[in-house]
């Protein structure tokens, strides 16, 4: 077969003309799946922070404090916000570190360890956010009760007070529940994928 044999000649000739892939490149390819998931965790957490910052810029609680003559609270809120951002920044830094670690690793054992670490970090992050939400809602309600003269007047009657507390509790639960679902959905999917990779790696480990 003349045509194919001509091709064969060229085929043999160019056998070594390919750009060679290094061992490090191969390791990277093997771990790419995990590293791309961890990259998404990092991206989503940053987007989330941007979203919250955006919302807090639109809604300014300072005005409310000024209106209710409780300017001294502005200061406290500022500290709380700074503290919160600091903690979130630490988490994002940890996500980044996990991402760096997973995308440059050259051994499966270490990769498995880092996958578990990433899972833990994400779980802590979610619990911190939910906890922070509960605390800030409780603080918010207490402040409103004490500071706002209208509500203060209303709640001086015992029955209304109980009703209000019940209402606030339900509000908090619903709100936190919604966020819990949101986190479960977004981070849950990513973590499940990551864990599937982990199990795959474990199988190879046998």
């Amino acid at each position: 077969m003349e045509e194919l044999d001509l091709l064969k000649k060229d085929w043999k000739k160019n056998e070594n003309s390919f750009e060679q892939v290094s061992e490090v490149d191969i390791y990277k390819m093997l771990h790419k799946k995990s590293s791309s998931i961890v990259k998404w965790i990092l991206i989503i957490s940053i987007l989330e922070v941007l979203l919250w910052t955006g919302i807090s810029l639109v809604y300014n609680s300072d005005e409310y404090f000024i209106r209710t003559h409780s300017e001294y609270l502005i200061e406290y809120f500022k500290y709380l916000t700074i503290f919160n951002y600091a903690v979130v920044a630490v988490f994002i830094y940890m996500f980044y570190k996990n991402y760096r670690a997973i995308s440059t690793i050259t051994s499966t054992k270490q990769l498995m360890k880092d996958i578990l670490k990433t899972r833990k970090t994400v779980q802590y992050y979610v619990w911190y956010n939910l906890g922070m939400m509960v605390i800030s809602m409780i603080i918010g309600f207490i402040l409103v009760f004490n500071v706002d003269p209208k509500i203060h007047e209303l709640t001086s009657k015992g029955n209304v007070m109980i009703l209000m507390i019940a209402f606030c509790t339900v509000c908090t639960l619903v709100f936190v529940g919604l966020f819990w679902l949101f986190y479960r959905l977004i981070y849950g999917i990513l973590l499940r994928k990551l864990f599937r990779n982990y199990n795959e790696l474990k199988k190879i480990d046998l």
Partner: peptide, 16 residues
């Protein structure tokens, strides 16, 4: 597992 992986990566590089 690390040995397995190392063997694999080496073989693959040689046979790429």
């Amino acid at each position: 597992s690390e040995n397995l992986e190392k063997t694999f990566v080496q073989q693959l590089r040689e046979n790429q």
